[in-house]
Design a binder for these strands. Structure first.
Lengths: 331, 331
DNA sequence: CTGAAAGCGCTTACAG
DNA sequence: CTGAAAGCGCTTACAG
C-alpha cells in the first residue's frame, strides 16, 4: 500500500509559480493582503488540479485552536428532536467555517472526551459537572452550557428556555380546553431528571400565572401498571388532564388507561412532547408539543460565535416560536 | 482573558528532570526503550502536577494520522438502536486508543466532512457514493463500509448482515406461528430504501428456505389511510401476517387496522423491528425484533482495527446472536 | 538507559 | 503586491 505523499501548500505554490505564503493568503482570504486576481486564479487552479486539502492538524498546531465545535450529548435516549438540533447546529456553524462533531459523554476518562479534538468550543447538551467544565476552560476551551441560565452568557440557555416553554404550552393548551387541575407525568429514569424539571417548571409557572393550583407530579415507570396506578390516583384527586414529560410517557399513560377501562380525553386528557413519528398512531391519536430545533440551534450558534469573536453582526437574536402544540385527540 | 500558555511535553521534561524525548517514550509506552521505573514514576508525577495533555494536532502532524475514527451517519431517523451502536463502538475502539466521532452526512461539500478531522478511518453507516469513497481513500483514509458485503473485507458487512438476520427472524417467527403467506411493509421514505432492502432480502430468503411463496411487498406512507389500504389489499390476497420494516411502520399498520375495524393478530399478524420504547404500549402490544448492537459494534471494531495494523489477536470473531424476537401480542 | 535534533504543514509577523 | 523564515508541539531515527 504505497500511500503517496500528501499534497501540501508548497506543491500548490510550485504549481502556481508563487510562494507558499501567497497560497496561504489566498486560501484564507487574508484581509489587507491585496493579491492580484490573476494570481488568485492561478492558485485556485493549482488547488483544483492537485486536489489539495489543507492539513487541519498543521493549522491547529500553528494557530493554537481547531475549527471544531464539540457537541457533547448525554447518554440518554435521544430521538429525532435531538438529531434535528444536531443537524441544524451543524449547518449554522458550517457557514462560519466551524465543524461540528458529536460525542456521547459516556462518563469515561475526562480528557479522552476532548483531548483528541482540541475543540474550539464545547457545547454541553447535557448537564455538566462543574469540575469537568473547569478543566475544559483551563485548557482554553470555551464551554457553552445549554442547560443553565447564565446572566453573563446570553444565548446559553436557549435549550433550557425551550424546555420551559414546552411546559408552558402544554399547560396553557390544557387550560384552554377547560381543565383547571393538572397533573405532571415525570419519567422515573433518573438520567432524565434535569430534563423534566425544566419542563415541569414551565407547567408550574403557567398554572401560577393562571391562578390555578400547582400541577401534581408523579413519576411513572415505563410500564402500563405503573401508569394505570398513577392515572387512578390523579383521577381520585380531581386531576382531569396531565402533561406527560414526553410522548413515551404519554403512550404509557394511554396504555394504562386502556387497561383500567378508561379513555382519553374523556376520563383524563393527555398531552405529550416531541411528536415522535408514532404519536399520530396512538389510540387515541396523541396531542403533543413539537419543538422547532432550528430556533434553538440558531440561538446556540449565536452564543458560540459571539464567544469566538466572530464578527456576527447577525442582526439581533434569532426569533420565532421554539415549540408549538400539535392538536390531535388525546387532549 | 489572559489565556495562559499551554503545558507542553517540554514543561513536563523540565519538571521531571529528563529530556522531552524520554517523556514522549514514557507516555507512549514505546517498546524497546527500557526506561527505569523510577524515571517513569517521576514523569507521571510531573504530568499529573502540571495537568499535561498532549497536543493531538502535533501528534497528528508528525505521524501523519490522527486517532480519530469518523462515524458517518445518514441523514435519516436514527432511534435508539443507532445510538446504541454508536455507544458500543465508541467504547470498543476507545480501548485501543481510537477516538470515535460522529457526524451526520448532510450532503454538504464533500471534504468538509472529514478534512478538519483527518480521521484514521471512516465508518459509513449509510450507503456511500463510490466517488466519495474513492476520494477519501485517495487521501489515505481507510473506509469501512458497513453496508455492502465485500469479500476482501470481512467484518465490513456486519451491519448489513444483521439487517438480513432481522428479516429472517421476522419471517421465521411468523411461520412458526402458522402463517404461510407473508407480506412486507416497506417505508415510502426513499432515504430508507437501502435499509429495508436488506431486511426484505432476509424475509425472502427465509420464505424460500421454507418453500413458502415470496413475501408480497407494499410501500406504506406514514398515515393510517395508506396503511389501511395496504392491509385490505394483503388480506384480499390471502396474506395473513406482515413483517413491518420497523416499529413505526408496524404502528401505522395497527392504526390502519383499527380504522378498518380489524385487529392484530387475528385479522392480520404484525411484527416490527427495533423494540422502540413505546412498542409495548401499542394496541395490541407490538411483537418486534430487538437488535443487539454490541455484537454488531464488536464486528465493526474488529474490521477497523484489522485495517489499522493493530495487533488484534482478539481471539477470533465476536460471536453471538445479533437480534432476537420480543414476543408480545400483535403476532 | 537517555538525549539532541530534524521535520511534519501550516500561519504570520516582517522585510522588501 | 509577494516571499523568506520562524515556530507551533510532537515523534522518531540516530548517536551516545
Amino acid at each position: 500500500m504505497a500511500r503517496q505523499r500528501r499534497v501540501t501548500a508548497t506543491d500548490v505554490a510550485r504549481e502556481a509559480g508563487v510562494s507558499q505564503t501567497t497560497v496561504s493568503y489566498v486560501l484564507n482570504d487574508v484581509p489587507h493582503q491585496k493579491i492580484s486576481a490573476e494570481t488568485r486564479q492561478r492558485i485556485h487552479a493549482a488547488v483544483a488540479k492537485l486536489g489539495y486539502a489543507p492539513s487541519a492538524a498543521a493549522r491547529t498546531l500553528r494557530t493554537g485552536h481547531s475549527n471544531i465545535v464539540l457537541l457533547l450529548l448525554a447518554r440518554m435516549p435521544l430521538g429525532h428532536t435531538a438529531i434535528e438540533l444536531v443537524e441544524q447546529l451543524t449547518q449554522a456553524l458550517q457557514e462560519h467555517g466551524l465543524s461540528v462533531v458529536t460525542r456521547i459523554d459516556d462518563g469515561g476518562p475526562d480528557a479522552s472526551l476532548w483531548a483528541d479534538l482540541a475543540p474550539r468550543a464545547v457545547v454541553m447538551l447535557a448537564p455538566v459537572r462543574a469540575d469537568r467544565r473547569k478543566r475544559m476552560e483551563a485548557a482554553g476551551i470555551h464551554v457553552i452550557n445549554a442547560w443553565r441560565r447564565d446572566p453573563e452568557d446570553a444565548g446559553h440557555d436557549t435549550l433550557a428556555h425551550s424546555q420551559h416553554r414546552v411546559g408552558q404550552l402544554q399547560a396553557r393548551y390544557l387550560v384552554a380546553a377547560g381543565h383547571r387541575h393538572l397533573g405532571y407525568a415525570a419519567p422515573a429514569d433518573s438520567r432524565l431528571s434535569d430534563f423534566y424539571e425544566l419542563r415541569l417548571e414551565g407547567v408550574r409557572d403557567a398554572c401560577a400565572d393562571l391562578d390555578l393550583p400547582a400541577p401534581v407530579m408523579r413519576k411513572i415507570e415505563p410500564d402500563r401498571e405503573s401508569a394505570a396506578t398513577a392515572v387512578q390516583a390523579w383521577r381520585s384527586e380531581g386531576v382531569s388532564a396531565v402533561c406527560a414529560f414526553n410522548d413515551e410517557a404519554a403512550f404509557a399513560l394511554l396504555a394504562g388507561m386502556r387497561q383500567a377501562g378508561l379513555a382519553a380525553p374523556g376520563d383524563l386528557a393527555v398531552i405529550g412532547v416531541d411528536d415522535i413519528p408514532v404519536a399520530r398512531f396512538a389510540e387515541p391519536p396523541l396531542t403533543t408539543v413539537d419543538q422547532h430545533m432550528g430556533i434553538v440551534a440558531a440561538g446556540l450558534a449565536e452564543a458560540i460565535l459571539r464567544r469566538q469573536d466572530f464578527s456576527t453582526a447577525s442582526a439581533g437574536k434569532p426569533r420565532g416560536e421554539s415549540a408549538t402544540v400539535v392538536a390531535r385527540q388525546s387532549a
